[in-house]
Design a binder for these strands. Sequence first.
DNA 1: ATCCGATTTGCATACGCATGCAACAAATTT
DNA 2: AAATTTGTTGCATGCGTATGCAAATCGGAT
Lengths: 341, 341
Amino acid sequence: MAGRKARGAGSGAGITSRDVAKALNISQSTVSRAFTPGASISPALRDRIFAAAEKVGYRPNLLARGLIAGKSNLIGVVLARQTNLLYPELLYELSGRLAERGYQVLLFPIGDAASVQDAINRIWSFRVDAVLATGVLDEAAVSAFEQHGLPLVMFNRVFDLPISSVSCDFAAGARDLATRLLKAGHRDIGLVGGPEGSFVGAEVERGVRAALAGWADARLSVAHVDYRYESAAEALKLLRREDGGLPGALLCVNDTVAAGCLDQLRGTLGRTVPGDVSVVTFGGFGPARWQSYRLTGMQQPMDQMTDAAIELLVGRIADSQSGVERRSFLPVFMEGDTAAI
Amino acid sequence: MAGRKARGAGSGAGITSRDVAKALNISQSTVSRAFTPGASISPALRDRIFAAAEKVGYRPNLLARGLIAGKSNLIGVVLARQTNLLYPELLYELSGRLAERGYQVLLFPIGDAASVQDAINRIWSFRVDAVLATGVLDEAAVSAFEQHGLPLVMFNRVFDLPISSVSCDFAAGARDLATRLLKAGHRDIGLVGGPEGSFVGAEVERGVRAALAGWADARLSVAHVDYRYESAAEALKLLRREDGGLPGALLCVNDTVAAGCLDQLRGTLGRTVPGDVSVVTFGGFGPARWQSYRLTGMQQPMDQMTDAAIELLVGRIADSQSGVERRSFLPVFMEGDTAAI
DNA sequence: ATCCGATTTGCATACGCATGCAACAAATTT
DNA sequence: AAATTTGTTGCATGCGTATGCAAATCGGAT
């Protein structure tokens, strides 16, 4: 147990193509060719090599392969915590489908703002082939990627820069939702938006205002809070009028905060939903569709968006000349039990 | 635009230490030393190198570094879909804390059983330093890792093999929960377990039976369904007695299915909870704590478990001789609105 | 000035694999 | 049977970095 060699504690940690070659009395390059699709090698020998490799537990070292090819087969995914409950699903789907294409997802979680630069450094260092990022990167970070020729696709965030993106059209969705509320007779609408400066929040507000433009007697109040369930109480406080009343319709930017509003209204505030107040949201997150919530609102077409993201990522890797592309997807209306519309 | 060189479309994709060296008229090894903590280099020169590197956008290539060191700084995380809603949180926390220690999380999603072998192959190929896996790996897969000396830590699954693991003590938790139910007067308990063969399901059942052992007049019915919300209906059908009655207490293995039961009971079946039926669960997932659910049950100490997982992973990487360690954590009781206990 | 020790730098090589080129064997043609 | 083609294999090299060893530089003490 004492005098072990450093390399790999167990038996077959550091098995190389040379080991396989030696076992078969052939050259290392031949072994390499056996594992290179399309390379020149006789089927019989390849089978023998595969068998020998299997026996000694050899697997090609993708790090070394990547070093030569200048391609790591790694795709970096940058994500922040506590933004959207749908993102875990995105992550799962994305990584699964990318795996089918030979890519592996490398995670770059962002804690606070300070860790952004750190994450970017690590992304560089790992030589990922492309990056998918949710809204946590700012313009400076984002343009750095593109300047250095690293394919970047933003998810649910569009910049005024030549950056590819895949996003849900929150403005159109919000306009649609607001219009439905207006047509149903609502004239007093409260918007529970994301934190000040949030892209999605701004888009939603833009859409709502567009819808309200044609209705002179309609009024809009806006509350900016973060995306937590607990923030709903604060939002409702902000939306309360001088006379103590609340808007008859709440448009929430997010499932979590919508659920919070719903619970506040029905619980603490003793309102009925959708009787007294209507609540609509952007979501589609599973639990928000459970019987006790059944939130009415707009659903992001995550499936299509995931596909689009993959297409853009892989496309840019294959052809670095392929240009910037912004794909926008209309959300679909989702019936529920929380709005009289 | 036409005659671009292959290597990296943009400007600084493939910048090497040699480029930095050339710019400063020094040797490549010196640049390397500047980026190697503890290496012999004068502070003045190091500063100049850092400045030059910054200017040309150089970052050390971790793939190459890993090739030499026999260490990739990658930690593979194997996870299946649709198991536990808490796992996204685990993933986020884990990747964040590992990043602080210089490790990056590489994702290996498992779709169907067939993809397990495929995932294992890729794990090998990427030369990850260690692997954390949720319960999707079987004994064969698991022992393959250890035989080849790749540190593996299982999350919430214990094998009768020398494999390290971090897990919540579901048996003890279930025993505690069941005892609470019994002491509150419940004698007819229904267990909504995971799919047949599930580790967690078996553990929970074991715990419940241990609790019931001392109560001769208590009876237990068990329903095995998968972890989906929709499965609750099926579970309740399975638990229905010949006379049409239902158990007075439901012990669910998972937040999702517990929420499903709750909604079925209150909705379709017209029961009150916790009046007619008590529902308890294993969980702690955010939305299951929202006002409309407030599920009573046991919460896994994810924070401690995450820390333990990191400790075991990093420990095994640093010292490959460190032995197998199984860390078990007691879940903590979580008050709620769904059980009369 | 001279020498010694300490510090800093360069040179050469290796990590594991892929690939161009040359060598070779086998299959086909003339 | 010789010439040509086609198909396989080995040799040598490079990807970007780290590191042992030797060379070089520097500071100070003699």
